[in-house]
């Protein structure tokens, strides 16, 4: 049995101690050790964005981090962005504007969309396309994703919430 290391991961405000091999990626630990399967794995080499999570507020690829590197950071996954039973405005917009079909890319897309609005609450369609270019979707053709992010931006400014 290879060496394991004990770390406390703070995911969505809940600290949990896990024991992992250093080679276990943060994505695998989130899915397998914490049971949070909303974080998806597509390419496992940084290209598709399906595994996107927020680490101390910054969007990162959880397939390119090791679980042991998550110690001491605040990690947010797709499960952590809503408010109890309430969807986050970005989730609502994806649902209303058909920003998803199979849903595989969606957790990453939603977190990336929130990251875009955090930096610019009112981005144009071209900016959304460029900023979200690191997330790949095989279904929607992107049009509806862009519309969803714009709709979420409008909704959030109306409600006075920030990303």
């Amino acid at each position: 049995m290879a060496e394991t290391i004990t770390v406390v991961l703070d995911v969505n405000g809940v600290g949990k101690e896990i024991s992992v091999e250093p080679r276990k990626t943060l994505a695998d630990a989130i899915r397998e050790d914490l049971g949070l399967t909303g974080t998806h794995l597509g390419c496992e080499h940084g290209v598709c964005g399906a595994c996107t999570v927020l680490m101390d507020g910054e969007m990162v690829r959880s397939c390119l981090l090791f679980a042991v590197q998550g110690a001491g950071a605040e990690i947010t996954t797709i499960e952590g962005i809503g408010d109890g039973g309430e969807l986050h405005p970005m989730q609502r917009a994806f649902s209303e504007y058909h920003g998803l079909q199979c849903g595989f890319c969606t957790p990453g897309m939603i977190l990336a969309g929130i990251d875009v609005l955090r930096r610019n609450p009112d981005p144009g369609p071209q900016e959304i396309r460029e900023e979200m270019g690191g997330n790949i979707c095989r279904c929607t053709g992107y049009q509806k994703i862009v519309e969803s992010v714009q709709a979420a931006a409008a909704e959030m400014s109306k409600e006075g919430v920030s990303a």
Partner: peptide, 11 residues
Amino acid sequence: MKPAVFSYSAP
């Protein structure tokens, strides 16, 4: 597990 086994240190 994707990578091969390695030992790890964080100086």
